[in-house]
């Protein structure tokens, strides 16, 4: 399975499906420690992304490269999500798009994409590991991807390593006390809940993994 523009298209559509399926779960997580709109916001954003992809399939020029798909996701999420996840994920996909002007991703290309996304999120949100944010899923995902790529794994296996690490990272946010974002207003009371942004990150990277093996 090659990671080309068709994969990027599948990843995006699968992301939309999975986010829709997880909408209530994400909203419930966010209701506990945030403003309760994460699931709804992301669902709206990814529905808009799919509408754009369909529109470009019927009318305009379809995205020719992986980077074009990611850029379309970025600009659409920024303008349609509303909450903090719009600019955060928007910037993540935008920075990811900058490093993937390639027709096809090799293992290091996957790492570069993930690194770009993490860099975008930290540039925008200024969070670090351990602050109970989506960085707690992205950072382990990047670390695991690097290790896998350096160990000679295939591009699809690099994605799988990243997705598994993101899921574990999301789970590890449960005991953390939030010091960034809306959850930080709750202080100690934010402990005991899984971070919604880290959870949606795991969902998106699992979709990337599954789109590579579908």
């Amino acid at each position: 399975m090659t990671l080309d523009v068709a994969w990027a298209d599948r990843w995006t559509r699968l992301s939309a499906e999975r986010i829709t399926a997880a909408r209530d779960e994400l909203t419930e997580l966010d209701r506990q420690i945030g403003d309760g709109d994460h699931g709804e916001n992301l669902d709206r954003g990814f529905r808009a992304v799919v509408a754009k992809l369909d529109g470009s399939a019927s009318g305009e020029q379809p995205p020719a490269q992986i980077g074009d798909v990611l850029k379309l996701v970025a600009t659409t999420l920024m303008s349609s999500v509303g909450g903090a996840s719009g600019p955060l994920y928007g910037t993540a996909y935008l920075r990811a798009a900058k490093v993937t002007g390639l027709a096809e991703l090799d293992a290091q290309g996957v790492v570069a994409l993930l690194e770009g996304a993490l860099e975008g999120i930290t540039a925008r949100g200024k969070a670090q590991v351990g602050e109970k944010t989506m960085v707690d899923a992205w950072q382990p995902a990047v670390d695991a991807a690097e290790a896998a790529a350096n160990g000679g794994a295939s591009p699809a296996d690099v994605l799988a390593a990243a997705a598994d690490a993101a899921r574990a990272g999301a789970g590890a946010t449960v005991p953390l006390v939030a010091t960034k974002g809306r959850a930080s207003y709750l202080g100690e009371r934010s402990a005991g809940h899984q971070d919604p942004g880290a959870t949606s990150t795991a969902i998106l990277l699992e979709a990337a993994r599954d789109a590579a093996t579908a």
Binding site: M78, G83, A84, G86, P87
Partner: peptide
């Protein structure tokens, strides 16, 4: 926070 991030995104783009 997210209003600030939205503005930063616009300025970035």
């Amino acid at each position: 926070g997210s209003a600030v991030m939205t503005v930063e995104s616009v300025l970035d783009m």
